[in-house]
């Protein structure tokens, strides 16, 4: 892990966030501190921090939540944003990621936020442009800003607002987080499973073999697999539900009725196994499939707060990427 962090800092611009593994516990702590500081700032003061700075959002996949979140974060800090997406066909047909990145750099972009369907694409962009790159989700690989906002949500709900300003390797001691669903295709699951155990949490991955191969154990110590959802839930302080990524299921035949029966978080299951556990979902969620609507809207749900924490954490990541020091 330390070696990874070291070689990456040598090859990629400071402030890049390509994988959650890039961050030491101290880095995570600093990001949370900065997040809290930015949130308490007067909006006018906050909007001066990145005034005149240029941020490009390069989106090869559609995304409402993450894109809007980064965009609003950048704007609240005073930065100018440019959205380049395949939907608006502003990505030149057939142009390589490298050339698109170099074009954005030549146009003055100082930081690129990238969402891409290919795992590892942010590494290519960061290597080839030398710019700080924020990974806003790459293929089945990672979604590091999501893991940070999930961490902030967990800390705030379990330990109170004031505890979310710093972390250590023991901050989540005694906390078990159950991540359930399509782990195989989930970048959110990977980033969380790589981050939370380093802060003391236990991560239980839960799902059928097809969506959760045993190789997932290789994500590191502190991660285990439990196929029985009820049994996993009984140990959970946090239940994080993931959507079934139908678009990536090619070739895997999944019996949805059986899946719902075994893995849906619904009111009965919640009452029986984990009446107090925090309920989370990175979205987009499919009510009635992995999660029942009343659970998503229930008192234990932190789903809307996750969105709010996303905006806050991404503001901090942008300040960090653009190398602005802010007194915490």
């Amino acid at each position: 892990m330390t070696e990874t962090a070291r070689t990456q800092s040598a090859r990629y611009a400071t402030g890049s966030l390509l994988s959650i593994r890039d961050l030491s516990v101290e880095d995570v702590s600093a990001i949370l501190g900065l997040t809290a500081r930015l949130q308490t700032m007067h909006p006018a003061e906050r909007s001066a921090i990145l005034a005149g700075r240029r941020v490009a959002l390069l989106f090869y996949e559609s995304s409402t939540r993450t894109r809007t979140s980064f965009e609003l974060a950048a704007k609240s800090l005073g930065a100018t944003t440019t959205l380049v997406s395949d939907k608006s066909s502003s990505i030149e047909k057939g142009e390589s990621l490298k050339d698109t990145g170099l074009t954005l750099r030549a146009l003055g972009a100082e930081c690129i936020i990238l969402r891409h369907p290919a795992s590892g694409a942010p590494f290519v962009l960061a290597r080839e442009t030398g710019l700080p790159v924020l990974n806003a989700g790459d293929g089945m690989h990672e979604h590091p800003s999501q893991a940070l906002l999930d961490l902030r949500t967990i800390l705030t709900r379990l330990h109170g607002e004031s505890s979310a300003t710093s972390v250590s390797a023991a901050s989540l001691q005694g906390v078990t987080v159950v991540i359930t669903g399509d782990i195989l295709h989930s970048r959110v699951a990977r980033s969380n499973a790589l981050l939370l155990p380093r802060l003391g949490a236990r991560v239980i991955l839960c799902g059928p073999e097809k969506l959760l191969p045993k190789e997932a154990l290789g994500l590191g110590p502190g991660v285990e697999i439990e196929r029985d959802f009820d049994r996993a839930l009984k140990r959970a302080q946090v239940a994080m539900m993931l959507r079934i990524q139908k678009e990536r299921l090619a070739g895997l035949e999944l019996d949805l009725a059986d899946y719902i029966d075994r893995y849906q978080l619904n009111a009965e299951r919640q009452a029986a196994c984990a009446p107090k556990a925090l309920v989370m979902h990175p979205g987009p969620m499919i009510r009635g499939l992995e999660i029942a609507g009343d659970v998503a809207d229930g008192p234990n749900s932190a789903i809307e707060e996750q969105v709010a924490h996303g905006l806050a954490v991404r503001s901090a990541l942008l300040v960090r990427a653009l190398g602005k020091s802010v007194t915490v």
Binding site: G120, G139, M140, H141, R190, L194, A216, L217, G218, L219
Partner: peptide
């Protein structure tokens, strides 16, 4: 190759 590294890299 299939295995733990591929899983982690999402490939």
């Amino acid at each position: 190759n299939a295995g733990a590294v591929a899983f982690r890299l999402g490939l």
